[in-house]
């Protein structure tokens, strides 16, 4: 009896093994083993910031292209790219500087009074398609957190006190998912800066000065004082709005004190020695 059981089990096992072997041979798909290796070196967030569909797509692109030019994983940065280049034996495109998402709206609950009550689905895209928003500013942040939902790295949070999103410098990988998610184009990917020091205009309101100011205490009113102050031509004024070009800015900090509304933000700078300007800008906002 035992013998029969052993034999029959053995035969079933053998048949299954043959069948599995045949199936695996017949349906085998060849994949370059290096793709798997490269993929392991990547962060694995599948965020798509590199421009390829997920990390597997990027890994395949790295393996299949002759040079690594234009192939860069903004999440992993230069470290990851050097690992990839070691695996593939190709020169990595390591030129990119560390970048970061920056929220360009400072229309806090205090600075931007509400003029109606939004009662629809709490989603920025829906609110934006409906109307200008709960405040008089038709450019500013809704605060419903489409960017937070989009972020795959837990790097952006809504501050309940201000009602605005805040970026966590440590976690942000500059993948740009939040930029795409924001229906108002408030978030910009900017240079992270030495020691995380950055200067930027925290406003995207293109209304005329009076209208903008009426809607929000912290709005850029397009007065142009900062542009005059800048010695490097980094500040441009367009549609009543100042913009600081981070590729030209030398972080001299001369523009911030002249801003009458405190719309220019400085981050992670040491405190100023002398307090001469009337403008109080809240540094270390982020």
């Amino acid at each position: 009896m035992i013998l029969i059981a052993v034999i029959s089990l053995g035969v079933i096992g053998a048949i299954s093994a043959i069948f599995l072997y045949a199936a695996s041979k017949k349906f085998e798909v060849y994949e370059d083993p290096r793709i798997g290796l490269v993929q392991e070196a990547l962060p694995g967030a599948n965020c798509g910031a590199c421009g390829y569909p997920g990390c597997a797509g990027f890994a395949a692109a790295c393996v299949n292209s002759n040079t690594m030019d234009g192939l860069f994983c903004p999440v992993g940065g230069a470290d990851t790219m050097s690992k990839v280049s070691v695996i593939l034996g190709k020169e990595a495109d390591g030129s990119a500087e560390p970048m970061l998402a920056v929220v360009r709206c400072n229309g806090t609950c205090k600075a931007r009074p509400k003029i109606n009550r939004y009662d629809g689905a709490r989603n920025c895209s829906i609110a934006s398609a409906l109307y200008a928003g709960e405040t008089g500013c038709s450019y500013g942040c809704f605060g419903f957190g489409d960017c937070v939902t989009a972020c795959a790295f837990d790097a952006i949070r809504i501050n309940p006190e201000t009602g605005l999103p805040e970026v966590n410098d440590e976690n942000c990988t500059s993948c740009g998912l939040c930029v795409k998610a924001c229906p108002r184009n408030i978030i910009e990917i900017r240079r992270k800066g030495p020691k995380s020091r950055r200067i930027y205009v925290s406003c995207v309101n293109m209304d005329k000065g009076g209208t903008a100011r009426k809607a929000c205490d912290n709005a850029c009113i397009g007065c142009g004082k900062c542009a005059k102050e800048c010695a490097f031509g980094a500040i441009t004024l367009e549609y009543n709005l100042a913009y600081i070009d981070y590729t030209k800015c030398r972080l001299c900090r001369k523009c911030a004190p002249v801003c009458p509304t405190g719309a220019i933000h400085e981050t992670n700078f040491p405190p100023r020695k002398e307090i001469k300007a009337p403008a109080t800008n809240d540094t270390n906002k982020i």
């Binding site: 509400k114 109606n116 939004y118 009662d119 629809g120 689905a121 409906l130 709960e134």
Partner: peptide, 9 residues
């Protein structure tokens, strides 16, 4: 007038 509700249809 500041307290009107706004919502999509």
């Amino acid at each position: 007038m500041n307290n009107l509700y706004m919502a999509p249809s």
